[in-house]
């Protein structure tokens, strides 16, 4: 079976340094893949390169066998969603934030759809009219997830989704990711927390100085 998303030999050179060095990772439908590594190891850069938000020096990304440029990068980003670490909330209400992505392609989500997306990430409907910029870190991340899910992506690229969260909120988000994967969304999550990677199960990678390799711990088991 053809993989849903293939990132092959991705290399990002910045100031003569190979921040990402020929990293290869494959995602199938409903798969969870985690990448661990210290700060500065290049894992965030790899994620942003796969999201086509930064140029790569070499390598290839294929979604359903086609390059983002062939699909159209705008369309590609709707199918391969990227949620950064500490996501910015846009001006306006939580509901307006959730409506952003579909709004870009002229689709107006109904109130019911917005509430459903919020519920999906464990947030109550009472949050919808609140100003998004006044939310707590955990709420922001979940709104950012709902915002990304509003585009109905096939793949979620997540940069340290639990970094701003307390253990309880982290668990809620991790459970949500597992549930999303069960329903067919492929997830590629960067994390530096060992237990979170373990809890998510799935294939594990470790990134060191820009080089990505399958986690030895996992390969042994």
């Amino acid at each position: 079976m053809e993989a849903l998303l293939v990132a092959r030999d991705i290399t990002v050179v910045r100031d003569d340094r190979r921040v990402v060095d020929a990293a290869t990772v494959t995602l199938d439908t409903a798969a969870i893949v985690t990448i661990q590594g210290g700060s500065g190891s290049g894992k965030s850069t790899l994620l942003r390169a796969i999201a086509t938000l930064i140029p790569t020096s070499s390598g290839q990304v294929l979604f359903e066998g086609r390059e983002p440029q062939v699909i159209g990068v705008i369309e590609y980003r709707r199918r391969v969603a990227y949620v950064p670490q500490l996501p910015q909330m846009f001006e306006g209400t939580v509901a307006e934030n959730v409506r952003t992505g579909p709004g870009f392609r002229g689709v107006a989500l109904s109130d019911t759809e917005v509430v459903a997306l919020l519920e999906h990430v464990g947030l109550g409907p009472e949050l919808a009219p609140r100003a998004a910029t006044e939310l707590s870190g955990g709420e922001r991340l979940r709104v950012a997830l709902a915002r990304a899910l509003a585009n109905e992506p096939r793949v979620l690229l997540l940069d340290e989704p639990t970094s701003a969260l307390d253990p309880v909120a982290s668990r809620v988000v991790l459970d949500l990711l597992r549930a999303l994967a069960r329903r067919g969304t492929a997830i590629l999550a960067v994390t530096h927390v060992e237990e979170h990677a373990t809890y998510l199960e799935g294939q594990r990678f470790r990134m060191t100085n820009g080089a990505l390799r399958a986690d030895a711990a996992e390969s042994a088991s």
């Binding site: 910015q88 846009f90 585009n151």
Partner: peptide
């Protein structure tokens, strides 16, 4: 920059991201 990039990540064209 962070906000602009998130607009792009949500499928905005550069025109849409820069509009406000």
């Amino acid at each position: 920059a962070a906000t602009l990039e998130q607009y792009l990540a949500l499928g905005a064209t550069p025109e849409q991201a820069l509009a406000p």
